[in-house]
Amino acid sequence: MALKSTIYKAELQIADMDRHYYSDHSLTVARHPSETDERMMVRLAAFAFFASERLELAKGLSDTDEPDLWEKDLTGAIQTWIEVGQPDDRRLAKASGRSEHVNVIAYGGRTSQIWWDGLRGKVERLRNVEVWSLAEGVGEALAQLAERTMRLQFTVQDGSAWLSSERADPIELQWTVLKARQRA
């Protein structure tokens, strides 16, 4: 018998002063049996970073044809494709061809840099792809916030971001941009 996903509920309050985006989101997160708390919480942080009224959690690990998050326009065309982790170059090329923007949020510190060093030459030509690497320890700190029912606050101001819950001190979400999207 296949293992089923575990359902988590997250109330996410976003105050992104840099983008002037302020909203509350009630999210139902299906955590795949092979997914860790760290990866699930990085997905939630990615949602907060790119939040909009049309951004949604996709099937991700459960379906190879879908990203972790995506935003579609009113016609169903994919505007933004968001991957969490360390996808391979074929997956990024496919995402680049199917969407207007592709964002990758890598985590894991040193392993992210090793992954990027091996991938860089293959994705540099993909103009609509942006790759971020979360700072060492951020993913582990986010995992400590994981609960079946969560109330989270996400704040961005002057290029700095924090995620906090009622039971923990804020976690500063630091990252490095490994590849910026090329503007037309």
Results as ranks from 00 to 15, higher is better:
residue 60 G to I: 02
residue 30 A to Q: 14
residue 35 E to I: 03
residue 113 Q to H: 15
residue 100 E to Q: 14
residue 159 G to P: 03
residue 16 D to G: 11
residue 38 E to T: 10
residue 39 R to C: 06
residue 54 R to D: 14
residue 182 Q to H: 13
residue 79 Q to W: 06
residue 133 S to E: 07
residue 6 T to I: 09
residue 108 G to E: 09
residue 47 F to N: 07
residue 12 L to T: 04
residue 116 W to H: 13
residue 31 R to G: 01
residue 65 D to T: 09
residue 24 D to I: 09
residue 149 T to N: 10
residue 146 A to D: 00
residue 104 V to S: 10
residue 9 K to P: 00
residue 44 L to S: 02
residue 122 K to R: 15
residue 158 D to Y: 00
residue 123 V to L: 03
residue 13 Q to M: 02
residue 160 S to Y: 02
residue 78 I to H: 00
residue 16 D to T: 09
residue 3 L to A: 06
residue 114 I to Q: 13
residue 117 D to K: 15
residue 179 K to I: 07
residue 30 A to T: 08
residue 91 R to A: 11
residue 152 L to V: 04
residue 184 A to E: 15
residue 46 A to T: 08
residue 26 S to A: 09
residue 139 G to I: 02
residue 124 E to V: 11
residue 60 G to A: 00
residue 40 M to F: 05
residue 52 S to L: 11
residue 83 E to K: 08
residue 156 V to I: 11
residue 45 A to D: 07
residue 180 A to T: 05
residue 42 V to P: 02
residue 180 A to Y: 04
residue 71 E to N: 05
residue 24 D to Y: 06
residue 132 W to N: 05
residue 152 L to R: 04
residue 65 D to H: 10
residue 150 M to F: 07
residue 117 D to A: 15
residue 81 W to C: 14
residue 40 M to H: 00
residue 58 A to Q: 06
residue 47 F to C: 04
residue 63 D to P: 13
residue 149 T to S: 12
residue 135 A to E: 10
residue 103 N to E: 14
residue 88 D to V: 02
residue 116 W to P: 13
residue 18 D to G: 03
residue 58 A to S: 15
residue 123 V to D: 02
residue 51 A to L: 04
residue 68 D to H: 05
residue 86 Q to G: 06
residue 129 V to F: 05
residue 177 V to I: 14
residue 140 E to K: 13
residue 128 N to F: 03
residue 161 A to L: 00
residue 16 D to E: 09
residue 81 W to D: 11
residue 11 E to G: 01
residue 139 G to P: 11
residue 96 S to W: 01
residue 104 V to Q: 11
residue 97 G to I: 00
residue 36 T to I: 04
residue 96 S to F: 04
residue 30 A to H: 14
residue 38 E to F: 01
residue 42 V to W: 00
residue 78 I to M: 03
residue 76 G to F: 07
residue 142 L to N: 06
residue 11 E to K: 07
residue 28 T to F: 00
residue 102 V to P: 10
residue 177 V to S: 09
residue 105 I to H: 00
residue 67 P to T: 01
residue 14 I to F: 09
residue 4 K to G: 10
residue 85 G to C: 04
residue 98 R to I: 03
residue 112 S to G: 15
residue 80 T to N: 04
residue 28 T to L: 08
residue 168 A to Y: 09
residue 82 I to R: 09
residue 177 V to E: 12
residue 166 E to H: 07
residue 21 Y to D: 02
residue 7 I to D: 04
residue 32 H to C: 08
residue 41 M to C: 01
residue 83 E to F: 10
residue 81 W to A: 06
residue 6 T to D: 13
residue 178 L to W: 10
residue 48 A to L: 01
residue 94 K to M: 08
residue 49 F to Y: 07
residue 34 S to E: 11
residue 182 Q to A: 15
residue 155 T to I: 13
residue 31 R to F: 03
residue 123 V to A: 01
residue 182 Q to M: 12
residue 16 D to K: 08
residue 75 T to K: 04
residue 61 L to R: 12
residue 34 S to Q: 09
residue 116 W to N: 10
residue 161 A to Q: 01
residue 154 F to E: 06
residue 44 L to I: 15
residue 181 R to T: 10
residue 13 Q to R: 06
residue 102 V to G: 10
residue 145 L to F: 08
residue 30 A to Y: 13
